[in-house]
Design a protein around this nucleic acid. Sequence first.
DNA 1: CTGAAAGCGCTTACAG
DNA 2: CTGAAAGCGCTTACAG
Lengths: 347, 347
Amino acid sequence: MFIIFDYMEPVTLKNIASELGISVTTASKALKNYPDVSPKTRKAVVDLAKKLNYTPNSFAVNLRTKESKIIGLIIPEIVHHFFSSVINAIIKKAEKKGYLVITLQSNESDKLEEKQIDLLLDKRVDGILMSLSNNRKDLSPLKKIIESETPLVLFDKISKVINCSKVIIDDRKAAYSATKHLINSGCKNIAHFRGPLNPQNSIDRFLGYKKAIEDYKLTFDKSLIYTCEKVTYKEGYNFAKQLHLSNKKVDAIFAITDLVAIGAITYFNEANIKIPEQISIIGFSNWFMASVISPSLSTVDQPGNEMGKTALKLLLKEIKATKKGKKIEYKTIVLPTDVICRNSTKK
Amino acid sequence: MFIIFDYMEPVTLKNIASELGISVTTASKALKNYPDVSPKTRKAVVDLAKKLNYTPNSFAVNLRTKESKIIGLIIPEIVHHFFSSVINAIIKKAEKKGYLVITLQSNESDKLEEKQIDLLLDKRVDGILMSLSNNRKDLSPLKKIIESETPLVLFDKISKVINCSKVIIDDRKAAYSATKHLINSGCKNIAHFRGPLNPQNSIDRFLGYKKAIEDYKLTFDKSLIYTCEKVTYKEGYNFAKQLHLSNKKVDAIFAITDLVAIGAITYFNEANIKIPEQISIIGFSNWFMASVISPSLSTVDQPGNEMGKTALKLLLKEIKATKKGKKIEYKTIVLPTDVICRNSTKK
DNA sequence: CTGAAAGCGCTTACAG
DNA sequence: CTGAAAGCGCTTACAG
């Protein structure tokens, strides 16, 4: 045969068909294992396809099947151990299931988050996974996703009023356990470095803290609540300093996040305040660093991997159901957390 | 008018055209600002498109234009501060330029890496950005990318023999500076916790270390070289212990990575060895944690953000050139690094 | 200024 | 078992 393919042009079904003197239809069916193709023809097609390194043009496949085989993921920040491990789990599992993942980072900006939702919808991703930015108040962008019939699963930072599947931890309970751990170890005046006022997350952790204080007959003292706007290391450091210089009687801190807790630890180390003898500190997330800082940080383990996996599993199920035109029933899955005792709290 | 669109069906150009009684061609041109459309028609189309929330079907656009507007990114590990910040920069900048990013993680497995290359090529991404896994020896998968005419830019962990653009730091020089910093502060017996034997990165850092030792007339001692297979915290910890128990005369360590350095710091802290008085430690990367650990870790700043931005910039340029059928000239960009002096080394 | 037509590369219902 | 035809939803060269 003297048919030569320009090696730059990708091989198409048409090439294969004409090379073999058969129709595009048959070539397509042969490669897709349709039963109504003779073994001989099938073999010829498969062999030639392999020889020419044929791969179906995904643009054409997408257009025909109306599926992108892409999942969109929007998170507030990648450079954050918890989210890194969530992404990780999602990407890995998606790949196994034949999906690729487009990741976008809202940077805690609700405007950007909205644009990113539009980008993903325009791209016609098969489903969207989101952890909301702290400032999200207007929920219409989320409703837009749902109206577009694109399956949506929220995880970690969710909105209770949006009607979709969710994967979360019980922040209130987890914060309760963390505070209880401090109380059980003998602490009586426990400060809380909380997160911003809006996100459900930080509200729940605050409420869990408060509940524990009250249940165990300690006095809730509003002046021991410090509100981190950005939830940074720096804020942890500064509030620790502020607390110290205020001369308030405090023997423990429950911080919204390990990062904030580590900021506090750094300050107290510098100020020569002994942890946990003079002040106990417990964080939240079980970031890798928590085990490495000195003293090592007691914290609440937040299962990032598990959360990513679970969220993706739910999403894929909904994608499948949607494709079949089935009604989706939304689930909210609550993953368990553990308090991890290290050296920043007393035994 | 009584034409009603099923609200579930996405709006197409055809819908708009028939609603307005014009052709699809004209509707398309109107939205794409072709000059040969009357202002009146244009306005009608644009208004209706807006009213109906029309967005072009990207599958169709992709198929027509043969562009996916997606960039593929393969890195060894996401949960790693340096790569997180690279991803970050890439995603942000890509978004601004109208591209979305599919991220894949090779997990240091060359087999997986190959599969992922195929996935991205099958997806017909417009370009690929890669940082190679440590085990990459067979370069044919990379050549496959190049043969497919998909622009490829390697960053950080590259292969010198592959003919494509690259963004790197001068690892040898950076390691030289780090070692020199130890020497200048009075250290004479400097151990090196190096990376695996294969990756160029770890070879170069080793060579930079060795060069500095020799230039400054210290004796290079092979027994002071410890090779991390996985470049983990644990290895840093264990080698520090091994080194300590060996009773070798050593007053400094240059570690391939902050993570390894922090492992070492943790061991020495536990063993009550004073840093930097008894042993100085310098790391590599300037991971966030380096500034927070105690003592804070001197290190080499590796500009992740800059690297991500630069790599993407090069890639987009090549994508544009390829589209125009222009010849690409490959560049290798070397980004500057700095030694950051903190408290784990003497002044 | 407008539109008919071709075509991107597939998939699949249908006819034979 | 095979293939002609329609169609997914766009874009664009071309004719008028």
